[in-house]
Design a protein around this nucleic acid. Structure first.
Length: 451
RNA sequence: GUCCGGAUGGUGUAGUGGCCUAUCAUGAAGCCCUGUCGAGGCUUCGACCCGGGUUCGAAUCCCGGUCCGGGCGCCA
């Protein structure tokens, strides 16, 4: 009986009509007593007390109690409400009643209830959260897991984070770009790539937009950013690695590593501030109190970090080693806030990292660290063609396979710097999520390819 | 890849050789109930990851496998 419902939205120009609903439940206030509304969403719970029956409807913005006085209400309506299964999709038209005994101080007295889609039973997990579910179970039924307010809140916050990052970039004169994810080179060095079949040739999923965003510096675009997927075929098995991740990448011409570190700390700090201001409800649902990290973040050189680590009494690291996980955790526990690790040995960082002129054994590369893990890494890049070629050779790579990348460096390449930031790690650390999979809608790891 | 731990109804769990035709909660089906808000009460339904082995007897012990969680490694 679709005709029972009259979409009541008064649309302003450009607004998307709410086809069936007039309000989200979070928009209803006790002061709206008497007004007619149409809600749409999933059946969160039904509590049938006999003479009175409560149907709790859940939508993106909250819960609304629909109250049916079973002896007085329309018989068909009572049958519909009593017969509907949990998590079915329903449309409810009715009047708002201010009611102190109801949650949030209001309830809906329904005039019509329509079941738009009936949910099967039993459910693969309990979306009300009364009974827990393990991560694996939740990911197998992610669509249902995301109906749990705690799971949904993470992704509302992630959206706010992306929005804030984009704001920061646009405010600083950046242009958003999209670089290819299907690439020909397997020889960037380091990480394993996913090979794919590309007509008669072999191709790969890109591990990073690094080479492309650098090439864009030769176009005069000057300041670019990209938020997009990266793919790594490493068989890692940790709670902070996935084989597909979203990377927030920037590249800036006429800038050095200090300039882009400053951009990075401001972007991160602003994201925290924006989330704390715009996602109060989500933070409350998650029980998270955000401390906006103060800028500037501490700078610690690689060499200082090694000295701090030697105080810990742990097995000592040699200068020139990459910093291992144990040391990383130790430093995090001592420092206790975001910090930059700077002035790395040139041997540890990629070939495109600019060495210091006066001390070429160290370079202008940096990592942004959260006390628990690395969030981002960046550098001032090598923009001199000859230096770049010799650095590629030093790393044991063949410059010929980088011809497409090296070419722009011969025709006017400005000095430039940039970084790449892991979006899910930023959200994971911001919200204190134990596993990065909690911060990704449909995570891809060594074993999980579905859903 | 490696080390440690784990796998019991749809979900989350108890259960260290016989007391287990397996506990509790949630759920589902049915009944009672006019203010629930993790509603309550009564009845019913539904499970020991797979394959070998030990034993009179295995959810429980052993071996192999699969999968899951955590640590490390890998991750320029």
């Amino acid at each position: 009986m679709r005709t029972a419902f009259i979409p009541g939205a008064n649309l302003s120009k450009g607004e998307i009509p709410l086809i069936l609903r007039t309000h989200y439940s979070g928009e209803i206030r006790p002061e709206m007593d008497g007004s007619e509304v149409t809600l749409a969403g999933h059946v969160h719970e039904i509590r049938d007390l006999g003479g009175i029956c409560f149907l709790v409807l859940r939508d993106r913005e909250g819960l609304a109690q629909v109250t049916v006085l079973t002896k007085r209400a329309d018989r068909n309506l009572v049958e519909t409400v009593r017969g509907v299964s949990r998590e079915s999709v329903v449309l409810v038209r009715g009047r708002v009643k201010a009611e102190p005994k109801a949650p949030n101080g209001f309830e809906i007295l329904p005039e019509a209830v329509e079941v738009l889609s009936r949910a099967d039973s039993p459910l693969p997990l309990d979306p009300t959260g009364k009974v827990g579910a393990e991560l694996d179970t939740r990911l197998d039924a992610r669509f249902l897991d995301l109906r749990r307010p705690t799971s949904m809140a993470v992704f509302k916050i992630e959206s706010a984070v992306m929005r804030s990052l984009r704001n920061t970039f646009y405010e600083n004169g950046f242009i958003e770009v999209c670089t290819p994810k299907i690439v020909a080179t397997a020889t960037e060095g380091g990480t394993a790539l996913f090979p794919i079949s590309y007509f008669e040739r072999e191709a790969f999923l890109n591990q990073s937009p690094q080479l492309y965003k650098q090439m864009l510096m030769a176009t005069g675009l000057d300041r670019v950013f990209e938020i997009g997927p990266i793919f790594r075929a490493e068989e890692h098995d940790t709670r902070r690695h996935l084989n597909e991740a979203i990377s927030v990448d920037v590249e800036v011409s006429y800038a050095d590593h200090e300039d882009v570190m400053s951009l990075l700390e401001n972007a991160v700090s602003s994201a925290y501030r924006y989330v704390s201001e715009s996602c109060e409800r989500e933070l409350r649902i998650l029980g998270v109190e955000l401390d906006v990290p103060k800028t500037p973040f501490r700078r610690i050189t690689y060499t200082e970090a090694l000295e701090m680590a030697s105080d810990s009494g742990k097995k000592s690291m040699e200068w020139g080693d990459d910093i291992d996980t144990e040391t990383e955790h130790y430093l995090g526990s001592v420092i206790g806030e975001h910090y930059f690790l700077t002035d790395w040995p040139s041997s540890v960082k990629p070939y495109y990292t600019q060495p210091y002129d006066d001390k070429p054994e160290i370079c202008k590369g940096f990592d942004l660290m959260h006390p628990t893990m690395e969030l981002a890494s960046g550098a001032q890049r090598v923009h001199d063609y000859d230096l770049l070629v010799s650095r590629i050779k030093e790393k044991g790579l063949n410059p010929e396979s980088f011809e497409f990348y090296l070419k722009p460096f011969r025709y006017g390449m400005p000095p430039h710097a940039g970084w790449g930031l892991g979006l899910a790690r930023l959200v994971q650390t911001m919200l204190g999520l134990e596993n990065i999979r909690d911060a990704v809608l449909f995570p891809r790891d060594r074993r999980r390819l579905v859903p």
